[in-house]
């Protein structure tokens, strides 16, 4: 019983790490793009839309993390 509880806890921790670390990665990726996009927007207002779009591109990584988290939660419990 105790082992199962520990296993469940570890799965939850793993799921958290998957989302959290992926989030940090995405954040690092977005920081550079965001800065460049703001710079480009300052030069040309028309770039705003594309700039926002470029900025959210690395967000896919978090989605991967989230999917992994779901799989952990559902497939290994």
């Amino acid at each position: 019983m105790a082992e199962e509880a520990i296993a469940r806890g570890l799965i939850a921790v793993g799921a958290g790490l998957a989302v959290g670390l992926a989030g940090i990665g995405a954040g690092l990726g977005e920081s550079g793009i965001g800065a460049a996009a703001v710079g480009a927007t300052a030069e040309d207002r028309g770039f705003f839309g594309l700039g926002i779009l470029f900025t959210v591109i690395p967000e896919t990584i978090v989605i991967f993390g989230l999917v992994i988290a779901f799989i952990l939660m559902f497939a290994f419990h």
Binding site: V62, I63, L66, V67
Partner: peptide
């Protein structure tokens, strides 16, 4: 594969 999974953002 990444792009397919990327659609999971609709849920997320």
């Amino acid at each position: 594969f990444g792009q397919i999974v990327s659609y999971a953002r609709i849920l997320a």
